[in-house]
């Protein structure tokens, strides 16, 4: 027992205390340094500029930077050939002041006919909010157009605050049109969500994959075990007993020594050896004293 306790102390310090400290640091860290949360608009100088500005913004001022991790990567690639930087500004619809410019029969269509996937969001499904309540009336500016109300620098003020009074810039980076967590799109545009999903699924799957066979094992064995007997006797009750006995003896002969060896080896390596190492580290002075005498 004592051996195990000694070994476990190391495991405990490494395996429990370190993650615990990490978790605390993760939770407390942002409190000390809120800058991380705030996108540009959070800084005093930008707020000042916004107040005094006449509505004109430089491109670098309004293009999203810190929050880009969750927004689809801008690309000039369309079809086979890429657009140049200046023609991309005109030709790519996600950057136009009127994103539906020149579409035929535009006014006869509803949004969902062309954007069926975009209805899959919490606001539509659970709160019954329609597209126009956020995206506004015609002309609907493209999401990456600098002066769009949906631009991350003013989205919180023009859109979110309609319902969420007091929303700030960081609040505006909540992803409404969230990709499915397990999809390739999420892996590319929102990796944190993607990996969180797979981690939780692994945890769920791992726990159930271990414990459901475990409870079934206990169930079967207890059914079999009026007097303590291995469950295999119960499972193989239709085979004549002598075969089982022989088979089990063979199994024990084959597997008992290597398993005992393995347990012994593990104990030596993880309990006895660290203990010796620790005792060596702890008592160097005594050893020196012995040498002198």
């Amino acid at each position: 027992m004592k051996k195990a306790v000694r070994g476990m102390r190391l495991v405990y310090l490494g395996g429990v205390m370190v993650p615990l400290i990490g978790l605390i640091a993760l939770l407390v860290g942002p409190l000390l340094w809120p800058v991380w949360a705030e996108v540009k608009g959070g800084s005093k100088i930008y707020r000042y500029r916004e107040r005094v500005a006449s509505g004109y913004y430089e491109g670098y001022e309004v293009s999203p930077r810190r929050a880009r991790a969750t927004v689809a990567r801008p690309s000039t690639k369309r079809g086979l050939a890429a657009y140049g930087a200046s023609s991309a500004l005109v030709r790519i619809r996600t950057r136009l002041p009127d994103s539906h410019r020149g579409l035929k029969f535009y006014y006869r269509n509803s949004c969902v006919e062309c954007h069926p996937k975009q209805t899959r969001n919490l606001h539509s499904v659970r709160a019954g909010i329609t597209c126009r309540q956020c995206h506004g009336a015609e002309p609907i500016a493209a999401i990456k157009y600098h002066y769009s109300p949906m631009n991350p620098i003013r989205r919180h003020a023009y859109v979110c605050t309609k319902c969420h009074e007091g929303a700030n810039v960081a609040f505006g980076t909540y992803l409404i049109h969230e990709p499915r967590a397990e999809s390739a799109a999420a892996k590319e545009n929102f990796p944190v969500l993607y990996y969180a999903y797979w981690m939780m699924l692994l945890l769920l799957g791992g726990t159930l994959a271990f414990f459901i066979p475990h409870i079934l094992m206990v169930f079967v064995q207890e059914l079999a075990m009026k007097k303590k007997k291995p469950a295999i006797d119960f499972l193989l009750f239709f085979i004549p007993n002598r075969f089982i006995v022989q088979w089990r003896e063979k199994l024990i002969k084959k597997w008992k020594p290597p398993i005992d060896k393995l347990i012994f080896f593990m104990e030596q390596k993880f309990v006895v050896a660290p203990r010796q190492l620790l005792s060596k580290i702890r008592k160097p002075a005594n050893d020196d004293a012995k040498d002198i005498h």
Binding site: P30, L31, P34, W36, A37, V39, R66, A67, A69, T70, H164, G166, A167, N168, A170, F171, G172, T173, Y174, L175, E178, A181, F190, V192, L193, A196, Y197, M200, L201, L203, L204
Partner: peptide
């Protein structure tokens, strides 16, 4: 308390928090 949370953390953390809450 999303408004309080986003004073310290970016908004996309709420996406992840919803997922983790549900999964856990």
């Amino acid at each position: 308390f999303p408004l309080l949370t986003t004073q310290f953390l970016p908004g996309w953390v709420l996406n992840v928090a919803a997922l983790v809450h549900r999964a856990e």
